[in-house]
């Protein structure tokens, strides 16, 4: 086994182990740490897929922003340091399984629809020209073909920000 393969295995173990920790852990702080580990694992997998930019963005957004916000929310809900473990009920388990299966199905369908015909059998991904995506091309796509969805997403974010500000202001006024 080469060094690269060992690192690849470590990345996969981190991704899956973190995900398991996030789901199975009884303490919310450990669950959050598991989530962070998974995000790092996914970022590592992006490096193996030859897209360092996406990998860094994954860490910057999901660890640096989303997880920090989750941490902030956890800190706000008060002391639950030695809370007894809540065991999963059957209903929760079934619901989780349902969600997982539906998202897996959607993901597989998405991959088949998008890359089904561009992936000839037996050609390694690295040699396939459709997978040579650089930062420049991502940016160009965003501002050419995909400019409408891109702007719509930013509009959505603006609306969300405005909503958050309004909520914060109104709750302050009521006190």
């Amino acid at each position: 086994m080469t060094v690269g393969e060992i690192i690849f295995l470590i990345t996969i173990v981190a991704t899956l182990g973190g995900a398991a920790m996030a789901v199975l852990s009884g303490s919310i702080v450990y669950a959050m740490m598991g989530l962070v580990t998974t995000m790092f694992g996914i970022a590592g997998l992006y490096v193996f897929l030859n897209s360092p930019f996406l990998s860094m963005m994954q860490i910057l957004i999901y660890v640096g922003a989303v997880s920090v916000l989750i941490a902030f929310a956890v800190m706000l809900i008060g002391p639950l340091y030695r809370k007894p473990k809540e065991w999963t009920t059957v209903g929760k388990f079934v619901a989780a399984l349902g969600v997982a299966l539906v998202s897996l199905f959607m993901f597989v369908r998405f991959v088949m629809e998008t890359f089904g015909d561009t992936l000839p059998q037996g050609v390694p991904l690295a040699e396939n020209p459709s997978f040579e995506i650089t930062t420049k091309e991502i940016g160009r796509l965003f501002f050419n073909n995909l400019v409408l969805p891109f702007e719509l997403i930013s509009l959505l974010v603006v609306v969300a920000i405005l909503g958050a500000i309004m909520l914060a202001l109104f709750s302050r006024g009521n006190k």
């Binding site: 962070v36 970022a43 860490i59 910057l60 660890v63 640096g64 997880s67 920090v68």
Partner: peptide, 13 residues
Amino acid sequence: ILVILAFSSLSMF
């Protein structure tokens, strides 16, 4: 620079 900025949030964790 993205590497530095991305990993710097780890110190907060």
